[in-house]
Simulated assay, not measured.
Amino acid sequence: MSNIHPTAIVEAGARIDPSVTVGPYAVIGSQVVIGAGSSVGSHCVIQGRTTIGQDNRIFQFASLGAEPQDKKYKGEDTELVIGDRNTVREFCTFNRGVPGAGGKTSIGDDNWIMAYTHIAHDCHVGNHTTMANNTTLAGHVLIGDWVTVGGLTGIHQFVKIGAHAMIGFSSAVSQDVPPFMMVDGNPLSVRGLNLEGLRRRGFSAARVAGIKQMHRALYRQGLTLDAARAAMAELPAAHPEAAADVALVLAFLDASTRGIAR
């Protein structure tokens, strides 16, 4: 295959679309699948049962699909699945899952993942996220769609980050972050709503008004969490355009296991 550099090592059994470009000294294991239009930079190592979709750009020195950094792992057959049109910059490390947690690490579509980002075993990353340099996800982290994570941020295992949330530079995230919120710091604090992100994504003024009322109920009115939930459940009557957004936040609160940043 003319698109594979002669110094690259591609083990027998790997399924690589003929349009894929593989750079010098890359190593690709026997269980790897790479879809059309993707590129793999020099010195990358892709191993294990790793499936990579179409039109991904993987820059030099990335390590994808290595064994999870979990002492319970005993060599079981687990996997890493990456969707389409992702950008993965230098020195990123994405690990496969462990059997007790489903055995799968997944990354969706259209994500922008900057250098030195670590995505540990059994993390699930949605679509259209941005992770700045040195973002670190411990095991079992869930990242919703359109989340932005600032550089040098650490996210504790089992934490959930809701859709459209924004995490500021150098934050320590040990509790769940509800959708739409903007947080930062160590200890983590909620600073407000990710209003600029919502506007860039075409949220109408009516939707944003409903989301602002949810933020008030959760963070500005001194309500207990149960009282805030009850108040939010009534919002669609006054803000019907935000009904789906209210349902998203209420479902997130129901699924939270570590408690929310508050």
Results as ranks from 00 to 15, higher is better:
Ile4Phe: 14
Thr7Glu: 08
Ala8Leu: 06
Glu11Pro: 00
Gly13Ile: 13
Ile16Tyr: 04
Ile16Leu: 11
Ser19Asn: 10
Val20Glu: 03
Thr21Ala: 12
Thr21Cys: 10
Gly23Thr: 12
Pro24Thr: 10
Tyr25Lys: 02
Tyr25Val: 03
Tyr25Pro: 04
Ala26Pro: 03
Val27Gln: 10
Gly29Glu: 09
Ser38Thr: 12
Ser39Thr: 15
His43Thr: 05
Ile46Trp: 00
Arg49Thr: 09
Arg49Tyr: 11
Thr50Gly: 06
Thr51Ile: 11
Gln54Tyr: 01
Asp55Lys: 02
Asn56Tyr: 12
Asn56Cys: 14
Phe59Thr: 01
Ala62Phe: 09
Ala62Met: 05
Ala62Arg: 02
Ser63Asp: 09
Ser63Pro: 01
Leu64Gln: 04
Leu64Lys: 01
Glu67Gln: 11
Asp70Lys: 07
Lys72Asn: 13
Lys72Cys: 06
Leu80Asp: 03
Ile82Lys: 00
Gly83Ser: 10
Gly83Arg: 03
Asn86Tyr: 14
Thr87Phe: 04
Thr87Leu: 15
Arg89Ser: 02
Glu90Tyr: 13
Thr93His: 13
Asn95Phe: 01
Gly97Tyr: 01
Val98His: 00
Pro99Gly: 09
Gly102Cys: 07
Gly103Asp: 08
Gly103Phe: 03
Thr105Gly: 00
Asp110Ile: 09
Trp112Glu: 05
Ile113Asp: 02
Met114Glu: 06
Thr117Cys: 15
Cys123Leu: 03
His124Asp: 04
Gly126Val: 05
Gly126Trp: 04
Asn127Lys: 08
Thr129Ser: 12
Thr130Lys: 05
Asn134Asp: 11
Asn134Ser: 13
Thr136Leu: 14
His140Leu: 05
His140Asp: 07
Val141Thr: 01
Val141Gly: 01
Leu142Asp: 00
Asp145Tyr: 14
Asp145Pro: 12
Trp146Thr: 00
Val147Cys: 08
Thr148Cys: 13
Leu152Ser: 15
Gln157Pro: 05
Lys160Tyr: 05
Lys160Phe: 04
Ile161Ala: 02
Ala163Ser: 15
Ala163Thr: 11
His164Met: 12
Ala165Ile: 08
Met166Gln: 09
Ile167Gln: 01
Gly168Phe: 15
Gly168Gln: 07
Ser170Asn: 14
Gln175Ala: 05
Pro178His: 13
Pro178Thr: 10
Phe180Ser: 00
Leu188Met: 14
Val190Tyr: 06
Arg191Asp: 02
Leu193Tyr: 01
Glu196Pro: 00
Leu198Tyr: 06
Arg200Trp: 10
Arg200Val: 07
Arg201Met: 10
Phe203Arg: 00
Ser204Tyr: 02
Ala209Cys: 09
Ile211Ser: 05
Lys212Trp: 07
Lys212Val: 07
Gln213Phe: 04
Met214Pro: 00
Ala217Leu: 14
Arg220Gln: 13
Gln221Glu: 15
Gly222Met: 07
Gly222Leu: 12
Ala228Arg: 09
Ala231Ser: 13
Ala231Val: 07
Glu234Gly: 12
Ala238Leu: 10
His239Ala: 07
Val246Leu: 13
Ala247Leu: 08
Val249Thr: 07
Leu250Trp: 07
Asp254Pro: 00
Thr257Asn: 06
Gly259Val: 10
